Simulated scan of single mutants.
Amino acid sequence: MPVIRVAQIMGRMMGGGVEATIMNHYRHIDHSRVQFDFIVDDNSTVVPREEIESLGGRVFTVPAYKHLPAYLKALRTLFAEQKPDIVHSNLNSLSVFPLSAAKKAGVPVRIAHSHSTANPGEKAKTAMKMVLRPFSRVYPTDYAACSNFAARWLFGDRLVDAGRVRVMKNAIDVDRFAFDKTIRAAKRAELGVDATQPVIGQVGRMCFQKNQLFTLDVFAKVLERRPDAVLVFAGDGDMMPQVRERIHALGIERSVRVLGVRDDVNELYQAFDVLAFPSTYEGLGMAAIEAQASGMSVVASDQVPDEASIIDGLVRFLPLDRKDAWVDALASAEPTDERADERDAVRAAGYDIDDSAARLCDWYETLVRKEGAAR
């Protein structure tokens, strides 16, 4: 069978969880069977072009989807020229746009992938999602989602119950997250933290969804109980200025480390004592999976799907209107050089990247064969 070319529609790449999921699979997939092309918006800030090209892939830049006529024209032209076997769109409800262009260009296999949900607090974005959601079944030939919850939110119960949606978990290289005392000591020294200080970590884009401003308000209260506590943010995004302003307004600059986008998140988990995960909505929550692989506890909002809890006792869900409970939970974190090895449990739950990449490769080949047989 010829090598299958898959056009991965990435939108604006900013070093977030969706990009990490697709890149994880790309690193581990059999490139003699499947190759990816990454279609990214021209306002992307974190595009691992060198790595993609070293693995045989390509990067194509198109106008941002907010410039819709130019975006659609560029995609139609690109698809007509490159003739991908599959277009796999990772834009949630916005997938209607690239998949409509793919259909017009005659792309035979078109996958819509649901990575997230919505929250009423994000008014404009949620309104757009609700308008587009009924069209999520118009242009795809096939469907994927990071969780059952995300699948039902975008595609509806009927498709899910009929077995039409493939759950593609946010798989990781589990061994990279194994707890290591030596790495812990080195990273804490890098952060200027001693062995006795509790470290609260949060990993994710700086945006409404990830809710860093909530974490800062809670952390200011944690400091009243634990003056030596430290909060570490890893990630970047449009709300970075607001995050920095809130840190200054609360007067907690000395206790907060803002690291930006990092390529050593797996090592940062070793330095943390608890992961704060107060998302306003999630399709699953990749950071929670990574934290559990490192044996670390997670305090998550009740807007995170239950499917994110895979290790008994490591994930605690709390409502966002109970800041006092968040303060109690985060303030109780204690530094320790001992953690259980949870890697086998994470693998057993279906989050091993080697297995997931192999199954994705098989799925792509099945779809292409099915389409070829139907012609």
Rank of each mutant, 00 (worst) to 15 (best):
V258H: 12
I183P: 00
D37T: 06
A287S: 15
I4M: 09
Y351F: 15
R27H: 09
R76D: 02
W153F: 13
V34C: 12
E19A: 09
K129R: 15
A151L: 05
A333H: 11
V256D: 09
Q303I: 00
L250S: 07
W363I: 01
K187N: 05
A162C: 00
D264K: 09
H25R: 13
A349N: 09
L320K: 13
R33F: 01
F149Q: 09
V243R: 03
A358I: 00
R226L: 01
V304W: 06
D321T: 13
A220L: 04
A7R: 00
S54N: 06
A329L: 06
K221G: 07
I200C: 12
L360V: 02
T77K: 13
T215E: 03
D362M: 07
D173A: 15
G201P: 10
A101W: 02
E19Q: 15
D312T: 12
P198F: 10
A20F: 01
V107E: 10
V274Q: 03
V199S: 08
E282M: 06
G204V: 00
F36M: 10
L360C: 01
Y65F: 11
V315Y: 02
P69S: 14
L284V: 04
H31C: 03
Q270L: 02
D41C: 14
D175Q: 14
P108K: 14
I252M: 09
M13W: 09
P241V: 03
R343K: 10
K129A: 13
E224I: 02
F277G: 05
I4S: 06
N211Q: 10
S294F: 00
I9N: 03
G15A: 11
G121F: 01
P335C: 04
V47T: 09
I172L: 11
L72Y: 02
M206R: 08
D328M: 08
V138A: 13
A249Q: 15
M128A: 15
H113A: 12
A348D: 11
V315W: 03
R58I: 00
Y351A: 09
S332T: 01
M168E: 13
A291I: 01
T21L: 14
D341K: 05
R226C: 03
M239W: 08
V203D: 01
Q292R: 10
M23A: 05
R254K: 15
C207V: 12
R58V: 00
I29L: 14
H115W: 03
K323A: 15
E53H: 04
V298A: 09
E224D: 14
H113E: 11
